[in-house]
Design a protein around this nucleic acid. Structure first.
Lengths: 328, 328
DNA sequence: CGCATTCATGTAACCCATTACATAAATAAT
DNA sequence: ATTATTTATGTAATGGGTTACATGAATGCG
C-alpha cells in the first residue's frame, strides 16, 4: 500500500501539505496543490481509513441490529438503511441478534471497540440501561427502547383498528385475531387496536384471540384450530403478513374459501403478500421510508452536536387485495 | 474511553506488559498478570480495535456483496455468512451492488481503505481484472468470477436437467422454459440443462424458451403470453422460485389449474415456495450451507498463507410440492 | 562456579493520517 | 517604511495499540 509519505516524497513536500490537499483544509499554493494531486494520481494513492479513524475517533461506519434478516420484513429495511448509509460515504454493518440479549451485548461491545459511529436497533430484548451506558448515537426502529432514545415507528394501534374496520366494512360479523409473539411490544399494541373495535360487540368472545409465534407453520395450525373451534368466524385480523399467509394456507387446507367464506387481513405490507393466491390484504407499513428516516435521523445525530431526542411515527395504509371482499 | 495507558498506570506496569497479558504473548509473571487483569476489570477496559487494526493491517471485518438483499434468495445467504463471521469474532459488512460495476468499484475501494480482511462476492458484472488488482482475499459465490478466484456454486446444468426430468416423470408432454436475466451466468447454465433434455424431442420448439427478468410481475406476464400462444404446454421449468411464483399467478389468472392442467417447477428453494397455494416444486439449493462454506473458505484464505484456489460445487435437490403432480 | 538459557519487563519504534504549533515569506494596512 | 495579516509549508505531537530490541534477574547445566 502506498502511504501519504510516498506521496509527500514524490511531490517533494511534507505529509502535512499532502493532508491539506486531500482534505481541502488550510492554505496550499495552487502550484503545490497540483504537484500533490499529480503525485496522488501517479501512485493511485488512497488514504488509510483506519489511521484516519484512529485519530478522529470516528469510523464512518454505522450498524443495523435486526432479529433475523431472514424474516421478510427486514431486507427492505436493511436496504433502505444501506442506501442512505452508502450515499453519505458510510459503511454498513449488519447484525442478526435473534432478540438475544447476550448477542446484543457482544455486538455492542465489538462495535464500540471499532468506533462505529451510530447504530439503528430493532429489538424487543435490549434494555435502556444497556443502551444508556453507551455514548454511540442510537436510533430505535419499529419498537421503542426508552424515552431518551430517538425512535421511528408506526401507528400500530390505529392501524389494527383500521384493519378490523375494513373487515367489518366488507361484511364480517365474527372477527378473530391471531396475535404476534408475546415479547414484542407491537403485539400488545395491535391487540389493543383489535380490542378497541370488538370488545363492545355482543358477539365478541375472548377465545377469538389466539396466540401465535412469529412463524408461518404455527400460523397455519393456529388458524385451523381457530376455524375448527369457531365455525362462525368470517374474518381474521392476523398480526403480520408472514402469519397472514399461513392463515391463508390454513383456511385452504380446511377447504374454506378466501374471501367468499372468510376474509383475512394482516399487517406489514411485505412483497410476498402480493404474490399469493388469493393475494393478501394488509395494513402496509412504508418500510423503505421508515428505514430511510431512521438512517437520516442517525446521521443527523452523529453530525449535529445539538441533536435532541426525536420520536417519528409513520402511518400504515390499507391495501385491499383479494383476501378481503365485500359480501352480498 | 479508557486506554491501555490507564490500565498500565493502575497496574504499575508498562503498556507492553498489559498488551502481553491481553494477548497471551511473551512472558508474564503470574502475579503481574493478576494485577493487570484486575486493573482491566476495575476499569472495564476494552482495547481499541482501530489502533490494533492500524498496526496489524487487519480489521477483523469481512464483507458480502449481493445484488440486492431484497431479493429473497439473499437473506438466507447473508444470514449464513454473518453467523460464521460472528462465530469467529469478525464483523459483517453488507453491500448492495445492484450488479452495477461502478458501485462495486466504489465499495471495493472503500473496503480496502478500511483494511477489510476478506470479501464474498455475488456478482455478474464484476470482472477478474478488477478483482485481480486487489490483494484482499475474495470468494465468488453463486457465480464464478475467474479461474484464480475460489468459488462456491451449485450444479446448475444438472439441476435444470433433473427439473425437466421430473416434469417428464409426472407426465408432461410439452415443456417450456422461462429464462432468467441475460447477464447472469446461471441463466445460460440452466437453459443448457433444459435443452439437454428437450432439444431432441420431436415436440420441441424454440419458442418454448421465453426470456424473463428477475422479477415477479414480468414472470406473470411471460407466463400468460406463453400459455396463450401455446395452449399445448403442460409443464414449465422456471428459472427461479420468485419467477415460479409469478408463473403460478399467471396460470391462475388464465384459469389454468396447477397442477391438474399444468405443472410448474422452479429453482432455488427459497422459503416462500412452501407458502403459496399450490406450493411450489423446486430444485432446492442448500442456501445456508453454501453461505457457510463460502464464509469458511474465506476465513481459511485469510488465515492460511498457503491457501490455494478452490472450487466447491454443491448439488441441488428436488423438492416435490403441489405444483407438480402425476397425471392419470 | 561460570556461562547459557529462560523468564520478566521496560523503552521506543511503528502503523498512517491529522493537526497544533512554529516559522517564514508575501501582502496589506498605517 | 514599519507593523499587522494573510499565505504557505514544515516539524512534531497525537490517536491507542503491538512488538523489536535491550536489559536484568532467575534458573539450568556442565
Amino acid at each position: 500500500m502506498t502511504t501519504i509519505k510516498d506521496v509527500a516524497k514524490l511531490a517533494g513536500v511534507s505529509t502535512a501539505t499532502v493532508s491539506r490537499v486531500m482534505n481541502g483544509t488550510g492554505y496550499v499554493n495552487p502550484s503545490t496543490k497540483e504537484k500533490v494531486n499529480s503525485a496522488i494520481k501517479q501512485l493511485d494513492y488512497r488514504p488509510n481509513d483506519v489511521a484516519r479513524s484512529l485519530y478522529k475517533g470516528k469510523s464512518k461506519m454505522i450498524a443495523l441490529f435486526v432479529p433475523d434478516i431472514m424474516n421478510p420484513f427486514f431486507p427492505e429495511l436493511a436496504r433502505a438503511v444501506e442506501d442512505v448509509t452508502n450515499q453519505h460515504g458510510y459503511t454498513f454493518i449488519l447484525c442478526n441478534t435473534d432478540d438475544d440479549f447476550e448477542k446484543e451485548q457482544t455486538y455492542l461491545n465489538a462495535l464500540q471497540q471499532k468506533s462505529v459511529d451510530g447504530i439503528i436497533i430493532v429489538s424487543s430484548t435490549i434494555t435502556k440501561e444497556l443502551v444508556g451506558k453507551i455514548s454511540t448515537p442510537i436510533i430505535a426502529l419499529d419498537r421503542i427502547i426508552g424515552s431518551n432514545i430517538s425512535s421511528v415507528t408506526v401507528n400500530n394501534r390505529e392501524g389494527a383498528r383500521q384493519a378490523v374496520q375494513h373487515l367489518k366494512s366488507v361484511g364480517c360479523k365474527r372477527i378473530a385475531h391471531i396475535c404476534g409473539p408475546e415479547h414484542v411490544s407491537n403485539t400488545a399494541k395491535r391487540l389493543k387496536g383489535y380490542l378497541d373495535e370488538v370488545k363492545n360487540e355482543d358477539w365478541f368472545l375472548s377465545s377469538y384471540i389466539v396466540p401465535g409465534e412469529y412463524n408461518f407453520e404455527t400460523a397455519v395450525q393456529a388458524t385451523k384450530k381457530l376455524l375448527t373451534d369457531h365455525t362462525e368466524i368470517d374474518g381474521i385480523f392476523v398480526w403480520n403478513d408472514l402469519m397472514g399467509i399461513g392463515a391463508l394456507k390454513g383456511a385452504e387446507e380446511l377447504g374454506i374459501n378466501v374471501p367468499d367464506e372468510l376474509s383475512i387481513i394482516a399487517f406489514d405490507g411485505i412483497t410476498v403478500g402480493e404474490t399469493t393466491t388469493p393475494s393478501l390484504s394488509t395494513m402496509a407499513q412504508p418500510i423503505y421510508d421508515i428505514g430511510t428516516q431512521a438512517a437520516e435521523m442517525l446521521l443527523e445525530q452523529i453530525n449535529n452536536s445539538g441533536y435532541k431526542t426525536k420520536r417519528e411515527e409513520f402511518t400504515v395504509q390499507l391495501i385491499e387485495r383479494q383476501s378481503t371482499r365485500k359480501r352480498g
